[in-house]
Design a protein around this nucleic acid. Structure first.
Lengths: 229, 229
DNA sequence: GATAGTTTCATACAAATGTTTGAAATGCAA
DNA sequence: TTGCATTTCAAACATTTGTATGAAACTATC
């Protein structure tokens, strides 16, 4: 068997099993059984279990990051060198949400794997995630160009909250579904992205805080009374 | 030694070690060494390792949930039976954020333990978290009273996003700190709570979507031009 | 088709880890 | 004290799991 076939079989089997049963429940013996290869093949081709997991994760991460940057670049070009804050947020959360949600998500091993990676956080993956900061800085820079004069702090919080909503939706989609008794449609990815982007932009453009986050409560209304709305 | 002393020593040692080094890195032998008790004591007093972890987590969870409900109740009483949406969100995210962030967080084993539990997600804890939905329903009910007429879907999304921002801030505080090069002050818990509450309320009160989340982009402005703001 | 390099395979290794056991110690009531 | 229940202890158990080994099978080059 060509060496690449074994390698690929291991990668595919590992991704599938990890996606289905999580990192804690899958052993190398499970993986090689699923891939129909010998136990020693994993260490021969990847060095160690952790390196196998790392390779799986970086592959998918690079994919997502590339999509993000492509969207960002497209938005900047169509905007004459400067993208709108809305487009930037869309480029940030869109690829991740599209990759992990949606009606076809059951079929996508890659998506389910990334969801697992988001939930379980195993050491080799954590190490890689720590390097993600450099990637996020590119978005911070774009945001700074889109909103010059805005305090950097506000910008980082906005970026942070956007990722919070996107990732939490992926991580806790089962709970949201159960809490809302199915009312929240997690298959309508477009609507979810719109929602996250809208709230993110609102968070970023609220109260023109100059430097100190005075954060005057921009609350639209006080207590509601019986006449409601 | 009175049996309770051994029990307590195990609980304290376990919480400390798990908080410091995570669930994956701490064995029962580490715990009993730290607690100065015999290895068999864990199984004698708790039945199994998982039950020990579960007991640690439920204790702290009950604590947080009680604080939340107390705040909610106080807000409802001072509001004549109906709390403002802002106060509800504050009751929801306040206790968690206060518990896990703040300058004294290094000293609070309980807080660091809960952060770990939020990051690592080990099976016994996951099982308990699944029951949290009932607790959240109480907040959904309060929100419904505060915003009658609002579509339930919007309400659930608002609740979901509030938790997203709170938990993500706890989970990823190190990354936010690094990304912002220290500009985001994660010790000013009051400001963080204000920020999360403000954005949550904005998300909830944005565009009076009647039923279908038409979600017309409530974006405040189009692309910025050179005159900026 | 011989040789060298690569890949596969069965098997063994070594270490870690949660759990169990049965006896010893301790506490407590009669 | 005696006797009974609870608690502690050292040691052993039983698995699981990632990794290493050395021979065999295979591939490709000369």
């Amino acid at each position: 068997m060509a060496s690449d076939q074994t390698r690929s079989a291991i990668l595919a089997a590992a991704e599938r099993l990890y996606a289905d049963r999580g990192f804690g429940d899958v052993t190398l013996r499970d993986i090689v059984a699923e891939a129909n290869v010998n136990l020693a093949a994993v260490n021969y081709h990847f060095g160690s279990k952790d390196e196998l997991i790392a390779e799986l994760f970086v592959t998918r991460s690079i994919q997502t990051n590339r999509e993000r940057l492509n969207e960002l670049k497209a938005a900047e070009e169509s905007g004459g060198g400067r993208a709108s804050i809305e487009d930037i947020m869309r480029a940030l959360v869109g690829p991740t949400l599209r990759g992990c949600l949606g009606p076809d998500r059951e079929g996508s091993t890659a998506a389910r794997f990334m969801i697992r990676a988001s939930i379980e956080s195993v050491p080799p993956i954590r190490r890689i995630k720590n390097r993600e900061v450099d990637h996020l800085r590119k978005f911070a820079a774009a945001m700074r160009r889109a909103m010059p004069g805005r305090d950097d702090t506000e910008l980082y919080w906005g970026l942070h909250f956007a990722l919070a909503m996107a990732h939490h939706t992926i991580r806790e989609k089962e709970r949201l579904l159960r809490l809302s008794e199915g009312k929240c449609d997690l298959d309508d990815v477009r609507a979810i992205i719109d929602r996250v982007v809208t709230v993110s932009v609102m968070a970023l453009t609220m109260g023109d805080v100059p430097s100190k986050p005075a954060l005057r409560p921009v609350v639209v209304h006080g207590r509601l009374t019986r006449q409601d709305l």
